[in-house]
């Protein structure tokens, strides 16, 4: 899909009116994640047509509906080991994302094929390196694809190597996190410059352990404003010591 300042408003209108086919719609959503021009055009188009939505006569709200919504929120709060665990439980995908995404992590985690591939990648990659990391975590995206490998050396340095192209919008940055313990909560290991692999100097942390969670999220440039993960989760995985 070609996009520039002249075509973005046109595509945004057709997207907002629901005139694109599903493949085009998805392409627009992906593009909008990294393209501020398109994002702005979509927002402008929404505002342009919103008054038509406000012409409806409000319907009577059924008594039980709020209760059902609240019950749905409770479900969402329950962390599922491996598949559902994340450092940023509130972070979710774009509003227009399809229904299946919520369950994608679980599917990814259950995919044994992905897991064995991941191990092979990690082992090959860690062979022949000088210092031995204390743990290695292979980070998968929602689709179960390998995105990055984190080696935590336990001396407050960690090396993260990206194994996939991660698109980082201009005003965003990729931040690396780990969860040393529930009490400590998620701790930032640092930011990836321009979305490239790098060696990070982390704050002093307890020695990393087996099954420790590592995660990368998309945050505002300069890092999460709250010191905790706030953005969408790009990839995550549990560490294991090499043997």
């Amino acid at each position: 899909m070609r996009l520039d300042n002249t075509t973005a408003p046109e595509i945004a209108d057709e997207y907002v009116l629901g005139l694109l086919d599903p493949a085009e719609q998805q392409a627009v959503e992906q593009e909008a994640d990294k393209n501020p021009t398109l994002r702005t055009a979509i927002a402008a188009s929404r505002e342009r047509y919103l008054p038509l939505d406000l012409t409806v006569e409000p319907a009577a709200v059924p008594a039980g509906l709020w209760g059902q919504i609240e019950a749905g929120l409770a479900d969402g709060d329950t962390a599922v080991p491996l598949g559902g665990a994340t450092l940023a439980p509130e972070a979710a995908l774009t509003p227009a994302a399809n229904d299946n995404r919520r369950f994608g992590w679980r599917a990814a985690a259950l995919s044994s094929m992905a897991a064995s591939l991941v191990l092979a990648v990690a082992l090959t990659w860690s062979l022949g390196r000088q210092a031995d990391p204390v743990v290695i975590a292979v980070l998968l995206n929602e689709a179960g694809e390998v995105q990055a490998v984190v080696e935590d050396f336990g001396n407050d340095t960690a090396e993260i190597r990206l194994l996939a192209d991660i698109r980082v919008p201009e005003d965003k940055a990729v931040e690396v996190w780990t969860l040393p313990s529930q009490e400590m909560g998620p701790v930032s290991l640092g930011l990836l410059e321009d979305g490239r692999s790098s060696r990070l100097e982390a704050p002093p942390l307890p020695l990393p352990a087996a099954s420790q969670l590592y995660e990368i999220t998309l945050e505002d440039a300069g890092g999460s404003p709250t010191g905790r993960p706030t953005g969408p989760v790009l990839a995550k995985g549990f560490a294991q010591p090499p043997r």
Partner: peptide
């Protein structure tokens, strides 16, 4: 609307 409100809740930070 029920699904949408759950989505609004989980995506509000965005």
């Amino acid at each position: 609307v029920q699904d949408a409100f759950i989505r609004i809740w989980t995506s509000a930070r965005q």
